[in-house]
Amino acid sequence: MSIEAKQIVKRFGGFTALDGVSVRIETGELMALLGPSGSGKTTLLRIIAGLEGADAGTLDFFGQDATRLAIRDRQVGFVFQHYALFRHMTIFHNVAFGLQVRPRGTRPDKAAIRDKVRELLRLVQLEGLEDRYPAQISGGQRQRVALARALAIEPRVLLLDEPFGALDAKVRKELRRWIRKLHDDLGITTVFVTHDQEEALEIADRVVVMNKARIEQIGTPAEVYNHPASAFVCGFLGDVNVLPTTGSVSAFIRPHDIDVLKAPDGAESKAGVVKSVRAVGAAVRLGVLLDGSAEPLEVALPGGQQDGAAFRPGEGVFLRFRRTQTFADGARNGS
């Protein structure tokens, strides 16, 4: 275990950003803090970094009480959402910064700093850009400079705030796989904040799902996706259909947990009408309006295009629910 936060509370004026949050981060894991904006995920990251102080609760850092430890003494590598590169410094000096500001006794000599910076730039695949200024490189390159700068201080933990938020879709995908690979190569404990469930599920070892200043669930991507602990987690992770219910429960079904049949299959299946057929790439999705309901359900066809060709809008079909998920309203577990 490397970092443990216990019952962290943080308020900003009248707003409660974190309401008794506890989380353990294991050494060497890649953990995602996932939630909608305002859920408290960035605040939690900043408290772990020491950029914010908690109003209540404790923070244990590698066996040391870090509740009052200044950021300077925590040895964390923090990558800001907009990178916060020093724009009057070249890429070289940005990466070298953490080494150059060390006290005289522990500061490496110039040659050692140069070698270290070169090595880091090679690691983030930015060799040859030493003399550029941050304004002269692309967003993806800036992101990797920020990463190299954070790694230069040999941090005990790497903290990334919305690391892919400011990049376009293609660069995002490349960069997140690259970060996963970098994490595997270096083995450094890493925590990143994201509001994108796909991002969290794709690269994290474990995901902390947050909502409204609290943790909804902590688990591996498969756990939180297949066994959501609350209605919120189920709805937030991936596509989901909300099923009409009676009483104080919510029921959900994922589009790929529905079978579409041409003929009824006993009492299990429900009759409906195909309203739309949408082909997006290899996947085909049907909108099916069940008899007696107001909103069409989204159904994903496993066979893609071939299956899609079998259905026409206006056609009568039967749906069989393979797996529905039901939650009592207001229930909160798993934290």
């Binding site: 590598g77 009057h88 910064f97 500001v101 700068r149 954070a150």
Partner: peptide, 27 residues
């Protein structure tokens, strides 16, 4: 001047004076 530049400098181990001299002052 966004305070994140100063926060970044602090997280990299710079003292208050180093943060001022190397990060804030040039700006």
């Amino acid at each position: 001047l966004d305070t994140q530049f100063e926060q970044a400098a602090r997280s990299l181990g710079a003292s208050r004076w180093q943060t001022f001299r190397r990060v804030v002052f040039p700006e």
